[in-house]
Design a protein around this nucleic acid. Structure first.
Lengths: 220, 220
DNA sequence: CGACAAGTTGATGAGCGTCAACACTCGTGG
DNA sequence: CCACGAGTGTTGACGCTCATCAACTTGTCG
């Protein structure tokens, strides 16, 4: 994974790129905002959420390292954006960024490709959410997180050894992402544990003991 | 809505564009295919689905008129593609299309913008699916279809008059899209009818009598 | 008219939401 | 060092919603 290589090289040529550090839980953008900056996620986890009139919050998607925040050709933001963990951003003024896009077609193409990948991910997630069973949903999410960890490049995971996952999410966030309640999420965790599929070292730290079984539990 | 204006103008300059007509229910692409054509949807409704080992099918997304089928920078298809209604496509050989993209930056930008809109739609849909109640889900879907009908340009709907919806989907397809069963979908329809919110003239034809109430039922 | 698919309705049970009590962690202050 | 409290996670009991299975109705095409 070369990540946002085009962006990075363009960045070096531009003085105006600003680094921003954001604490865990902080609000980055609100629905309806028209941010004047375009950012690249350097580190951390970001959640895109919407809040319903009844107070429930849904997590619509995530942005991880090398993902982009904000978009060309569209100013307004369609959802709330929060930092889940501490986040490190690299920001460009909007106008500068759009001129960069014209100057560097490769950059434009890279962003296009990346947004198509995000589209795939969003649709895959919609597919997970159509599966009713709580166990299936949680297992699917764990597998997706696992894959992203692998993609991030820890070579040892290719050994099919037991993979350790450090969850960036609270139980409530998991529930909001899965369309379940905290209690149900918790119960599914202990069930997966009792079935010997995972091992919980702490609330946010777990080890996948049996990947095959986890995939079976995900129903795919 | 000018639709795929750039594509259309490019099309006129190209002999190789082929028109394809596909019957309702036919398979257009299978997951894993590497189609050698890139198509623009002229008319009809297309569903993107995936089938799970247990036989259940999920609808991941839809493509309507002016949407595109196939994508630049990625050959393999991640899901099955079926015609829901009769479909009219306008297809370009893949290589030709990719050279067109370089020749016409406007076209590239248009497709980029469109894919970002699709990303928004996919995330919005994920948000709907996190809401548990069957009534909320079906109401949300009806509203989304309504909006798309309006966007397609029937001026009279702006009058807030009763909107007629001609569903392209069977009950089973609705169920697969909503993550519910046929029976539950059917029950929700009759409940919305009994509540005076909609009126069912036939299984696939309904009138929205009270849009406000439908929005309330959607929970947003 | 008959046969098959599609849709509706009913009865029943399982799974998840809800409410409530309890356990654990962490930080603060006596 | 322990006491206390707030925040977070877990477990239990119960009710409601939706999936399941089944019967029936409607529509469509030969």
């Amino acid at each position: 994974m070369t990540g946002c290589a085009g962006l990075a090289s363009a960045k070096r040529r531009v003085d105006d790129a600003r680094h921003r550090h954001i604490g865990a839980g902080e609000l980055i953008m609100r629905e309806g905002d028209t941010p004047d900056h375009f950012s690249n996620v350097v580190a951390g986890v970001i959640k895109l959420t919407c809040t319903f009139p009844d107070g429930r919050e849904s997590i619509l998607g995530l942005q991880l390292a090398s993902d982009c925040l904000g978009r060309p050709y569209r100013a307004v933001c369609g959802y709330d954006v929060h930092a889940v963990t501490a986040v490190h951003l690299c920001s460009f003024p909007r106008r500068l960024f759009e001129s960069l896009l014209q100057e560097f077609p490769d950059l434009d193409r890279h962003l296009f490709k990346q947004s198509l990948d995000e589209l795939d991910a969003a649709r895959e997630w919609a597919g997970v959410l159509t599966r009713h069973a709580a166990r299936e949903r949680l297992s699917s999410l764990l597998l997706i997180i696992m894959r992203r960890i692998e993609a991030a490049g820890c070579a040892n995971s290719a050994l099919a050894a037991n993979v350790m996952i450090d969850l960036p999410f609270s139980r409530l966030e998991l529930a909001n992402y899965l369309g379940l309640t905290v209690e149900t999420v918790s119960r599914q965790f202990t069930q997966l544990k009792n079935d010997g599929i995972i091992s919980l070292t702490s609330a946010r730290e777990l080890v996948v003991l049996d990947q095959r079984a986890l995939e079976a539990a995900a129903g795919a």
